[in-house]
Amino acid sequence: MPTAEFLPLDPSAINVQSFNCGKDVINTYLRRYAAKNMALNLNRTFVLPYIPEALTPKQDSGKSHVAAYYTLALQTLMREELPDPSRLPRYPVPVILLAQLGIDRRFHRQGLGAKTLVHALRHAYQIASNPNGIPALGIVLDVLDQEALAFYRSFDFFLPLTDNPMKLFVPMASLETL
């Protein structure tokens, strides 16, 4: 069973190699790039750890495994790319990119996808609304596939970012009550 708390990825305490959400690109990102990108200060990955109940001694490294994860990064967009650009400056505006989100197959269909998404959105909101944080107009998602698009569309607050239906946006203001 997963712990109750998402934590920053710590490769010395978390076994990322066992993660399998069924999507190679999401698996590969966590396994190969998440820690490297954090070390380069490009983004932050947060994991929901768990300890498997039945591990053989050969499989038990003393590390927790990943039930779910998400990655946040900063990005800028031109005002023309945003749903309501009328009051925005003519230079790029900051947004937070929800760059990755994955749920291990062992936890599919248990509500963990919604829990992870809500946690990521709340976290992004806290970053943007904190006086000591980094301001951002909203959150952007580059959606991986049709299955992910259906998942995100099941939440009422996402707007299309562009003519591309695989790019979504949620204004920070709409997350105040989340």
Rank of each mutant, 00 (worst) to 15 (best):
M1N: 09
P2M: 04
A4T: 14
L7F: 09
D10W: 00
D10Q: 11
P11C: 04
S12H: 10
S12G: 09
S12N: 11
I14K: 00
V16M: 03
Q17N: 08
S18Y: 02
F19H: 02
F19P: 00
N20Q: 11
C21W: 13
K23D: 12
K23A: 12
D24T: 07
D24I: 09
D24N: 07
I26N: 01
Y29D: 01
Y29K: 03
Y33M: 08
A34S: 07
A34I: 04
N37R: 10
M38N: 09
L40D: 10
L40I: 05
N43T: 03
T45G: 01
V47M: 06
L48E: 02
Y50P: 03
P52N: 01
E53K: 15
D60A: 15
S61K: 14
S61L: 14
V66K: 00
V66Q: 01
A68E: 05
Y69I: 08
Y70W: 09
T71C: 07
A73T: 00
L74C: 14
Q75S: 15
L77G: 03
M78T: 12
R79L: 06
E80G: 07
E81W: 02
L82H: 00
P83H: 00
P83N: 03
P85F: 03
S86C: 08
L88N: 00
P89K: 03
R90N: 14
R90I: 07
R90C: 09
Y91P: 00
P92F: 05
V95N: 06
A99L: 05
I103W: 05
D104H: 13
F107V: 04
R109Y: 11
R109Q: 12
Q110W: 05
Q110L: 09
Q110G: 08
G111K: 04
G111M: 07
G113W: 00
K115V: 11
K115L: 12
T116H: 04
L117N: 02
L117R: 02
V118A: 12
V118T: 13
H119A: 10
H119Y: 09
A120Y: 06
L121T: 07
R122C: 15
H123A: 11
A124G: 14
A124Y: 06
Q126H: 12
Q126W: 12
I127V: 15
I127F: 03
I127K: 00
A128G: 11
S129M: 13
N130G: 07
P131G: 12
N132R: 15
N132E: 13
N132H: 13
I134E: 08
I134H: 13
G138Y: 07
I139K: 04
I139W: 02
D142N: 15
L144W: 00
D145Q: 03
E147W: 06
A150S: 08
A150G: 05
R153M: 09
S154Y: 00
F155E: 00
D156V: 10
F157W: 13
L159T: 05
L159N: 03
P160M: 04
P160Y: 01
L161V: 04
D163C: 09
D163G: 15
P165H: 08
K167N: 14
L168D: 01
A173T: 13
L175E: 08
E176C: 10
L178R: 02
L178S: 07
L178A: 05
